[in-house]
Amino acid sequence: MLQAGHSTSHLPKKQVVLPFYKSVEIAVKSIKARFFRSMITTMSLILAISFFSYTKFNANIAKTVFIADDKAAVQKLLHLGYEPVNYKDGQGTSPKERWILFLSLLVCVVGIVNTQLMAVTERFRDIGTMKCLGALDRFILRLFLIEAGLQGMIGASIGALFGVLIAFFNTFIRFGTSAWNFISFNDSGMVILTAIALGCMLSILGVLYPALLAARMQPVEAMKGKD
């Protein structure tokens, strides 16, 4: 990468670097410094992911109930509008649920893109300064991705636990103590893990465009940006 012949005698073959742990350190600092802004980004993620895990958890319960064919429980579910055909086999959720889930996740990503675009604009000067000090485009990109990854991890974890907990109590309220027969801890664990992975993905997806925009900016433009 540094093999341009004309400069061999003058510029030693050295690269600028930013070690990974340093990137994480800077990303954590940025999150802390803009805690409120980060909270708003994270909040939409928490809501979307808790909705996701709530729905998935309930779908798992419905599936177990329909397969076990527990008469009283099945009656209750039918009364609530669950249709056995959707849960016994196939997708495990109803088309309507899938549609609402998709919409809620979409709204969440749009919200993240929006707040992150604002966050990036706010930081044009810092980005320009860092570039003047020798930061490469990909350092900037990496900082934003790590930040989004961390936010995603935290937001999705809170959201997933929150959603599953509510669904858990909801199951007890619905079925009483027989709920124990329908709750599978393996399935619940899977729901939480999927939800967290999905949350991280959404968060990173949402920051990708703003971060690319920031990383590609010329230092002079970046510093003019705020004035």
Partner: peptide
Amino acid sequence: QLDAYELAWLR
């Protein structure tokens, strides 16, 4: 004539 890496190094 410098590429992005060399320019960053220079800065």
